[in-house]
Amino acid sequence: MPANGIMMKQIALYGKGGIGKSTTSANLSAALSLQGCDVLQIGCDPKRDSTRMLMHGNFIPTVMDLVRERGDAQLKKEDVVHTGFHGIRCVEAGGPEPGVGCAGRGIIATFQLLEKFGALSGDVIVYDVLGDVVCGGFAMPMREGYAQEIYLVTSGELMSLYAANNICKAIKRLSSRVKSTCRLAGVICNAKDMPREEELVAEFARRVNSTLVQYIPRDRIVQLAELNKQTVIEFAPDSPQAGKYRALAAAVVKNNSLTIPAPLEIDALESLALEFM
């Protein structure tokens, strides 16, 4: 049991590409760290920009790039784990150039290497995972006992809910495995400023057998912070938006409500969206 009183939590944020997973992850990590947690954030996307705001705009070398350049036998833990804002440890899995190779396999290889280094430690590990669950490699954070708590990041837009619903299917499938510890921990609404958006996402969460853990409104301060190469937590700690991220962090720490999701059929999903138009 760590000093701050919580068991190590391994959480993963999944959601549609461009929905704001990396922004949410980085601000969540920053808020958790300021609340006393030892945090490791792992970007699981070949774009390698998950941890950039925690590293003040710097792209850290990715695990896959380092393995390709030096070979895994030459690498040490400190080559792949970089310390960012408030001591948060940052890792980027990286991957191939778009259109070649297999990025999913790159995620698997990264996890194997981090295991070998004993780098998967701390109070909270935040896995920030590429868009949709496109193949088994990108489901890796949910498998093999890595992330046990999955948060869906979605807006009220239908395609975003559709992606979240698809991820529910993956969680449900993986939950059925005997050794699986992966569960749905909740839904985070990263809002697009649609009418009744919070209600819609909350209802979606309820229907897939989960809850809305935090509503994060759209706020220009997020873009401003990013242009200053910082998280909102660091750039504008007194802003209402920073308060939302801190509330999210608090909710994540105390959240023990883990469920096996009940994904919706597409017709039911579309009907739900219509109800809130």
Binding site: M64, V67, R68, G95, P96, E97, V100, G101, C102, A103, R105, G106, A109
Partner: peptide, 10 residues
């Protein structure tokens, strides 16, 4: 090997 699978084997 793994690297060729991840980054392409051309």
């Amino acid at each position: 090997q793994d690297m060729e699978v991840i980054f392409g084997g051309e």
